[in-house]
Simulated scan of single mutants.
Amino acid sequence: DALHGTDVFGTSLVLAKAVEKAGFDLVVCGMASTDGSMGVLPALLAERLGVPQVTLLSEVSVGGGVVRGRRDGDAASEQLEAQLPAVVSVTDQSGEARYPSFKGIMAAKKKPVESWDLEDLGVEAGEVGLEGAWSRVEEAAARPARTAGTIVTDEGEGGRQVAEFLAGQKFI
Rank of each mutant, 00 (worst) to 15 (best):
V162R: 07
S115Q: 01
G36N: 13
I151A: 14
A22F: 07
S89W: 03
A141F: 02
I151W: 10
G104S: 12
E81I: 11
L166V: 13
G149H: 03
R70A: 12
D120Q: 10
G122M: 04
G168T: 13
K110W: 10
G126E: 11
A43R: 03
E138I: 12
D154V: 10
G5E: 08
G95N: 10
S33Y: 08
V90M: 07
A2W: 00
A148G: 12
Q169S: 08
W134L: 08
R48W: 08
G36C: 07
L13I: 00
C29A: 12
V54Y: 01
A148M: 05
R70V: 12
G63H: 01
L56M: 04
E139T: 15
T11D: 03
T6W: 02
G129M: 07
G69Q: 07
V62A: 00
G64W: 13
P52I: 12
P52R: 10
A22M: 12
G23N: 09
F165L: 15
F102T: 09
A76Q: 15
K21G: 08
L121V: 05
G95L: 02
L13V: 02
V87R: 00
P144L: 06
L45F: 05
S94Y: 03
A82N: 13
L41S: 04
G63F: 10
F9W: 11
V90Q: 02
G129W: 03
S135F: 07
S12W: 00
E164I: 10
E119W: 06
G63M: 08
F165G: 05
V87P: 01
R70K: 15
V162Y: 02
G39V: 00
S33A: 14
V67C: 04
A82E: 04
V67G: 05
A140Q: 09
L49E: 03
V88G: 01
A142H: 06
V152S: 01
S37F: 12
V60L: 13
G23S: 09
D154C: 06
L49I: 08
A141K: 09
E119T: 15
P85W: 04
V123S: 01
K109A: 14
A32K: 11
V54S: 03
V113S: 05
K110P: 01
V128M: 00
D117W: 15
V14Y: 04
V137Y: 02
V54A: 12
A75F: 12
S115L: 13
F171G: 09
G5M: 00
V40R: 09
L84D: 08
A46M: 05
Q161V: 05
A133P: 00
V152A: 03
T34V: 15
E127Y: 11
F9P: 00
